[in-house]
Write a protein that binds this DNA or RNA. Structure first.
Lengths: 183, 183
DNA sequence: AAATATATGGAGTAGTGACTTCGTTTACAA
DNA sequence: TTGTAAACGAAGTCACTACTCCATATATTT
């Protein structure tokens, strides 16, 4: 691939991340304009709009997985789990796409790459959960599916309701109280 | 209004409730076809698609408010609160529109009628919450905004993740543990 | 610096969906 | 039962958006 083509590809990805982050229904033209390229260039790099969306989705999921893996190395597994949870929910509030990505990652319909990225991210989160449970920071009878559902729900709830930071934190405090082991 | 016009209006509302319940992006044609009328008839009763969506939204919110008011008469305020919460989340799983309605009701942008309906429904829910707190079934330091956010989040999470009934109940068990007063 | 393969952007094409027009039909009053 | 105002549906208009074509421009190789 020629150097200018590679540059443009990166610019398009960044623009798509931004544009679709605000509204997944945005048009391909919007992405092209923000990236400063013609429409044709977008479609040369991503054959369909769906393919572009999936590329953005994959990127988001990989970033989340990386953060989870990074936190997994931490000394305090309980803190690591709750910090990851909090970060995901907080960012979803400003980046709609993250909440969408989380959802799509669990529901299929996405392409091969995105599916794999979703799997990787869920595995990393499962690792955080298991470690936190072993450390006694999360009740041991909570299973992955409902905890993941809680993560999705909290994200989408915070996003959809446009919660201010304070209310969001109070909501998370309630959620965390439900996750902590009975005293 | 002529009798046949009134009939058709009702048929359109029912069809819209069904169609938009499955996908809010559905077209007006779909609604007209399901209602068994021509497109023009839909637009004669509802000047824009938005107006039709708002009518459906209002209907949903009024139904939820009615159910909350009905439960408010119950002898056990704690049970009433949790039953309402559970019902809303369970139904959202099959009716996308409820989750959307809840969201929209808190975020503005909706028309006057829908806004009023949203207000009424939130007030009714607030009534359930306060009564449950007085009865000692919900921790007294939880405020309405975060509890409502939790309701929205649980609904949207269950809907988005397409949870099966069992996982959904386990998720709600975690949420309820966070809402109950510390022992 | 010339040759050439690679990339580019803007003007098209096709399909969809919200909304309108208008000739026809139907409910209702006299 | 007949007149008429109200309501109807089918076919259109218009705007928008995903996607394509092609003449032009640019990177790279020798």
């Amino acid at each position: 691939m020629r150097a200018d083509a590679r540059d443009n590809r990166a610019r398009i990805m960044t623009a798509a991340d931004e544009v679709f982050g605000q509204s997944p229904a945005a048009s391909t033209d919007d992405v092209a304009k923000l990236a400063g390229v013609g429409i044709a260039t977008v479609f040369r790099h991503f054959a369909t709009k769906t393919e572009l969306l999936e590329a953005v989705l994959t990127l988001r999921l990989e970033r989340l997985r990386d953060r989870a893996l990074q936190l997994a190395g931490s000394a305090d597994p309980g803190a690591a789990f709750y910090e990851f949870f909090t970060q995901v929910v907080s960012e979803s509030a400003s980046k709609l796409a993250i909440a969408e990505a989380l959802t799509a990652s669990g529901v299929a319909a996405a392409g091969e790459e995105a599916r794999a990225a979703g799997h990787g991210m869920r595995e990393a989160f499962d690792g955080l959960l298991t470690a936190a449970q072993k450390a006694g920071a999360v009740r041991p009878d909570a299973h992955f599916p409902e905890v993941y559902a809680l993560l999705i729900g909290s994200s989408r709830g915070a996003t959809a309701a446009r919660l201010d930071a304070e209310t969001r934190d109070r909501m998370l405090a309630l959620v965390y109280d439900g996750l902590k082991p009975p005293t």
